[in-house]
Computed example of a mutant assay.
Amino acid sequence: MSITLGTPPMNVLAIADTGSDLTWVQCKPCQQCYKENGPLFDKTQSSTYKSVPCESRNCNALSTNERGCDEAKNVCKYRSPVSFPGTVFGCGYDNGGTFDETGSGIIGLGGGQLSLISQLGSSISNKFSYCLSHKSATVNGTSVINLGTNSIPSGLNEASHVISTPLVEKEPKTYYYLTLEAISVGKTKIPYTGTSYYPNNDDVSMKGNIIIDSGTTLTLLESGFYDGFGAAVEGAVTGAKRVSDPQGLLSHCFKSGSAEIGLPEITMHFTGADVKLSPLNAFVKVSEDMVCMSMIPTTEVAIYGNFAQMDFLVGYDLETRTVSFQRMDCTNTI
């Protein structure tokens, strides 16, 4: 729609958008703007233009992730989507794998030098977090990723229910290694026996024996440990009997008759962080009367997958080398 701004009035053509609140136009001096056919609005040529103070009602009406402040000049600033110029990315011409039609490629969040996180580095204070919504798997839900200093809760304490565990330095640097010490099924604590799949020459201990991965769905646990762990889960499930997965993918499935299936609480004991999983984290409903564990055995690298991470704010601080967990409803963090 065509509007005029300023005194004297300047004609501007802008998009009428029922999905936006703030009205904005490109203005001089423009640090980074898209190409525009018409002239840019010049505030110095308008006698009625004035800035908005940082603590004004209008400035505070911006959402926290949009609001900024030039404290030296006491001028309210707003933020729009951020661009990252000079970023290295790949163009794939011959691709395969277990991808569906929804996406187009991968955003690399790993620890290697080519990842987006490593390339942004100090500009995001080497910090990022995400909150994966369980509803995004079934409806048009949305999950959130946060980059920068404010992406991780400050005060790791019991009051805020934030817990953290050390990241272990190992090769390859792409992976984020954690140390899983045990898993509890109800009140039965089972020590984890898996060792690191990529041990350092001088480290054959339990440190760094599992990687946390937002791009893997299931949790994969060392097969020797899994036998006893699976038996403990089977013994703790009520109102259902053990059956085989019709698709042959999941290891431990349980089918009920008429009773409601009772599922045990599963707790992941990482170094310094006991992460209590909900049934949504540890089990997946495959039909009205059947659930399966979303954890399977592996003879390769152990992986803490994204089902187990749903409805947690998972924060990565690559300066302090820690990963933090805070339970929350990720559908309400948008």
Score class of each variant (00 low, 15 high):
residue 102 T to I: 03
residue 173 K to S: 14
residue 26 Q to F: 08
residue 153 P to L: 00
residue 59 C to H: 06
residue 27 C to W: 12
residue 97 G to F: 08
residue 229 F to M: 00
residue 258 S to H: 09
residue 296 I to Y: 01
residue 170 K to W: 00
residue 146 N to L: 04
residue 84 F to W: 06
residue 238 T to I: 06
residue 129 S to W: 02
residue 213 D to E: 11
residue 67 R to H: 09
residue 120 L to H: 03
residue 7 T to F: 11
residue 62 L to K: 13
residue 234 E to G: 05
residue 326 Q to A: 15
residue 334 I to L: 12
residue 108 G to P: 01
residue 24 W to H: 08
residue 101 E to T: 13
residue 54 C to F: 11
residue 127 K to T: 02
residue 291 V to C: 07
residue 50 K to A: 10
residue 72 A to M: 13
residue 334 I to Y: 05
residue 222 E to C: 01
residue 189 K to R: 10
residue 209 N to D: 11
residue 296 I to D: 05
residue 33 C to I: 12
residue 45 Q to S: 06
residue 285 K to F: 07
residue 156 L to V: 08
residue 212 I to Y: 07
residue 22 L to Q: 10
residue 196 S to R: 03
residue 231 A to Q: 07
residue 78 Y to S: 02
residue 305 G to C: 02
residue 168 V to M: 00
residue 118 S to A: 13
residue 100 D to Q: 09
residue 20 S to W: 10
residue 26 Q to Y: 13
residue 172 P to Q: 06
residue 279 P to V: 12
residue 60 N to Q: 08
residue 230 G to W: 01
residue 188 T to K: 14
residue 229 F to A: 02
residue 109 L to W: 02
residue 20 S to I: 12
residue 15 I to P: 01
residue 218 L to T: 04
residue 77 K to M: 15
residue 266 I to P: 04
residue 136 S to A: 13
residue 300 E to F: 00
residue 307 F to D: 01
residue 332 N to G: 07
residue 146 N to E: 02
residue 281 N to T: 12
residue 194 G to M: 02
residue 177 Y to T: 03
residue 206 M to N: 15
residue 313 L to V: 15
residue 312 F to A: 05
residue 48 T to W: 04
residue 109 L to K: 02
residue 98 T to D: 13
residue 87 T to D: 01
residue 270 F to C: 07
residue 143 S to G: 01
residue 155 G to W: 02
residue 213 D to W: 12
residue 252 H to W: 12
residue 139 V to L: 09
residue 284 V to L: 11
residue 248 G to F: 09
residue 120 L to N: 03
residue 313 L to K: 15
residue 111 G to F: 08
residue 9 P to K: 11
residue 19 G to W: 07
residue 82 V to M: 15
residue 144 V to T: 08
residue 187 K to C: 05
residue 111 G to M: 08
residue 242 R to S: 15
residue 138 T to I: 08
residue 239 G to A: 11
residue 118 S to Y: 10
residue 177 Y to V: 03
residue 128 F to S: 02
residue 242 R to A: 10
residue 41 F to L: 00
residue 259 A to H: 07
residue 193 T to H: 04
residue 246 P to I: 08
residue 11 N to S: 15
residue 317 D to F: 11
residue 323 V to Y: 02
residue 58 N to Q: 14
residue 174 T to W: 04
residue 220 L to C: 00
residue 124 I to C: 00
residue 96 G to I: 07
residue 131 C to A: 00
residue 304 Y to K: 01
residue 117 I to N: 06
residue 250 L to N: 00
residue 94 D to Y: 12
residue 133 S to D: 05
residue 260 E to R: 06
residue 99 F to V: 05
residue 302 A to S: 15
residue 34 Y to T: 03
residue 160 S to V: 09
residue 50 K to V: 08
residue 210 I to F: 14
residue 295 M to A: 10
residue 280 L to D: 15
residue 65 N to D: 11
residue 201 N to P: 00
residue 217 T to W: 01
residue 69 C to W: 05
residue 80 S to I: 14
residue 53 P to F: 04
residue 186 G to L: 10
residue 22 L to S: 10
residue 92 G to K: 10
residue 165 T to V: 06
residue 203 D to L: 07
residue 253 C to R: 13
residue 188 T to S: 14
residue 248 G to V: 12
residue 161 H to K: 14
residue 53 P to C: 05
residue 258 S to M: 06
residue 183 I to T: 06
residue 166 P to T: 10
residue 65 N to K: 10
residue 334 I to T: 07
residue 243 V to T: 11
residue 117 I to Y: 03
residue 144 V to Q: 05
residue 321 R to P: 04
residue 63 S to H: 09
residue 6 G to T: 14
